[in-house]
Nucleic acid binder design. Structure first.
Length: 438
RNA sequence: GACCCCUUCGUCUAGCGGUUAGGACACAUCCCUUUCACGGAUGCGACACGAGUUCGAUUCUCGUAGGGGUCGCCA
C-alpha cells in the first residue's frame, strides 16, 4: 500500500519553524517512497483562526518548496481538507462511538470518551515501542456542549477517513498518542504508524516558542535567507544524511532520507550555523539566481540596479564570497549603482591625514589613463608602475584607490572594482576624490 | 506530583563491544590576501554519574542525576 502522510497545522499564528520541520519530514517520507503528502487545516478553534495565519501556512510551505498533493488549493478525493467543513463526518463518527457505548455526557452537554483503561503500546518508527500502563487520567472530552469537536477526536477521525498510513509529528504528542490509539481501537480502525521526532529547542534549551529568534518561517524570508538553505538547516536539526559535508539540496535530501536515521534527542537552534548554511548555498547560485535573489534587497535599500542583468551579476559576484545573507548585499555594492555615493567618515579622515594623497591621486589618474588594457592584470602593472615612479609602495596606493572608487574602507577587490566600473567611471571617481581634497 | 522521551566537545553531530573518540559551526593562532571575506594549517574542546554483563564498555542492562515534554470543553 502506498504511503499517505499529512501535515495538519492549525491556522492560529504564523508558520512555526517546528511545524515546518514536521511538515518537512512528512514530505521527505512521502517523496522518498512515492507516496502522498496531504495538507489538512485543523481550524476547529474558530475564535483563534485567522485568514492571515492560513496564508502564512500556504506561503511558508511553498517558499520552502514543500508542495502538497492533496489539500487546500489542490483538492483531492478525501476532502474537504478543512476541519471546519467536516462536521457531518464527525457527527457520524460520534454516533458510532455512542453506539459502541464509549461516550457519556456531562451535565452541561459536553461528551467524554470512555478510555479502555488497558495498557497501550505505541510502535514508534523513531523511538521504538513506547508502553503506557492503563491510565488513571479522567476520560477525555471529545465534543463540546455546542456540538463542536475536540482536536483529538477530529485528528483521529480524519486520519481514518483520509487513509493515513504514517504520522510523523513532534515528540510533544507522545503523551497524547495512546489516547488516539484508544480511539482508533474504539472505531475498529487500524492506527497509522507513528514516528515522533525530537523537538526544536531555542538556544537556552526549551521548546521553541513564538518569542524566539527564528520562530517564524516568514522571518527567514525577511532576513534574507534562501529557502533551500533553511530547508537544509532544518533537516540537519534531527537528521544526518549519509553524505560528505552538510550542504545538500532538497532533491538530495529526498534521495537520502530514511526515517530510521532520524535522531532521538532534541536539538537546539543555532542561528549562526543556519547563516553559515545560507552562505554555502549562496555560493552555489548561478548569475541569474544570484541577481533574482539580491535584486529585491537592493531595491529595498533604495538602490536602482537597472536592467543590465550582466552588470548586476558582475557587481554581486565581486562580493559573493563576502556575504552570508541577501540583506548584506546593499552595503557592499551600492556604489556600483551611483556616482553620487557618500564617503565614510573614516575614509575622509584617512584621506585628509595623508598629505601625499592629492599628488598620488593625480599620478594614478595619469597612469591609469595611459593603460592600454583595462584588465586586472594590466591594472596591477599600471599601479606598480605609478608606485615606482612616485617612490612609494604599491600598498600605499591601493587604499587611495579603494577610498576613491567606493567611499568605503572595505569592499570588493580593488582591481575587480575598477574592471567592473570600467575605465571612464573609475577615472572620474579618482577625479572626484581629488577634488574633495582640494 | 504522575507519566513519557532524551543524555558524546559551548552548539549540531559521527560512532552501532576493541578508535590516538572523527567531522561541522563558533572561538584562538598562523598562512594566503596591498581591504574584508573565501580557502588552507594548527589549536581549544566531549562519552553525566554509579553498578552490573564482558577478556574488554562511549557502545548492552539496571539504577541515580540532569534536560525536555505531556497531563484542557487549545491544537
Amino acid at each position: 500500500m502506498s504511503i499517505r502522510v499529512r501535515f495538519a497545522p492549525s491556522p492560529t499564528g504564523y508558520l512555526h519553524v517546528g511545524g515546518a520541520r514536521t511538515a518537512l519530514f512528512n514530505w521527505l517520507l512521502a517523496r522518498k517512497s512515492g507516496g502522498t503528502f496531504i495538507l489538512r487545516i485543523e481550524d476547529t478553534d474558530e475564535a483563534r483562526n485567522t485568514e492571515a495565519a492560513m496564508n502564512a501556512i500556504f506561503e511558508g510551505l511553498s517558499w520552502l518548496g514543500i508542495d502538497w498533493d492533496e489539500g487546500p488549493q489542490k483538492g483531492g478525493d478525501y476532502g474537504p481538507y478543512f476541519q471546519s467543513q467536516r462536521q457531518g463526518i464527525y457527527d457520524a463518527y460520534f454516533k458510532k462511538l455512542e453506539e459502541a457505548g464509549r461516550v457519556y455526557f456531562e451535565e452541561n452537554g459536553a461528551a467524554r470518551f470512555k478510555f479502555s483503561r488497558e495498557a497501550i503500546t505505541i510502535p514508534d518508527m523513531v523511538c521504538g515501542d513506547i508502553r503506557f500502563a492503563p491510565t488513571e487520567e479522567p476520560d477525555m472530552t471529545v465534543r463540546r456542549p455546542d456540538g463542536s469537536y475536540i482536536f483529538h477526536f477530529c485528528n483521529v477521525v480524519d486520519d481514518i477517513e483520509m487513509g493515513m498510513t504514517h504520522v510523523i509529528r513532534g515528540e510533544d504528542h507522545i503523551s497524547n498518542t495512546w489516547k488516539h490509539i484508544d480511539l482508533f481501537n474504539a472505531f475498529g480502525a487500524k492506527a497509522p504508524v507513528y514516528g515522533h521526532i525530537p523537538l526544536l529547542l531555542n538556544p537556552s534549551g526549551s521548546k521553541m516558542s513564538k518569542r524566539d529568534e527564528g520562530a517564524s518561517i516568514d522571518s527567514y524570508l525577511q532576513a534574507g535567507f534562501l529557502p533551500q538553505a533553511v530547508f537544509n538547516y532544518l533537516c540537519l536539526l534531527g537528521w544526518t544524511p549519509k553524505l560528505e559535508g552538510e550542504t545538500f539540496s532538497s532533491q538530495q535530501a529526498v534521495e537520502l532520507f530514511d526515517i530510521s536515521d532520524v535522531h532521538h534527542s532534541n536539538a537546539r537552534f543555532d542561528m549562526t550555523k543556519c547563516t553559515w548554511v545560507n552562505q554555502q548555498h549562496l555560493r552555489l547560485l548561478d548569475d541569474a539566481a544570484l541577481v533574482a535573489y539580491a535584486r529585491p534587497w537592493l531595491e529595498k535599500a533604495g538602490i536602482n540596479p537597472g536592467n543590465d542583468e550582466a552588470y548586476i551579476a558582475r557587481t554581486l559576484n565581486s562580493v559573493k564570497e563576502k556575504v552570508s545573507l541577501a540583506s548584506e548585499f546593499p552595503s557592499w555594492v551600492h556604489f556600483f549603482f551611483t556616482e553620487d555615493f557618500a564617503f565614510e567618515d573614516e575614509v575622509m579622515t584617512k584621506l585628509k591625514a595623508n598629505a601625499q594623497a592629492p599628488k598620488l591621486l593625480a599620478a594614478l589618474q595619469t597612469g591609469l589613463q595611459a593603460t592600454s588594457e583595462w584588465t586586472e592584470a594590466s591594472l596591477g602593472e599600471a599601479v606598480t608602475k605609478v608606485a615606482t615612479t612616485e617612490g612609494v609602495k604599491a600598498g600605499a596606493l591601493m587604499p587611495l584607490l579603494r577610498f576613491s572608487l567606493s567611499g568605503q574602507t572595505r569592499g570588493p577587490d580593488v582591481k575587480v572594482m575598477m574592471v567592473v566600473l570600467g575605465q571612464e567611471r573609475a577615472l572620474a571617481r579618482l577625479g572626484r576624490a581629488a577634488a574633495l581634497l582640494a
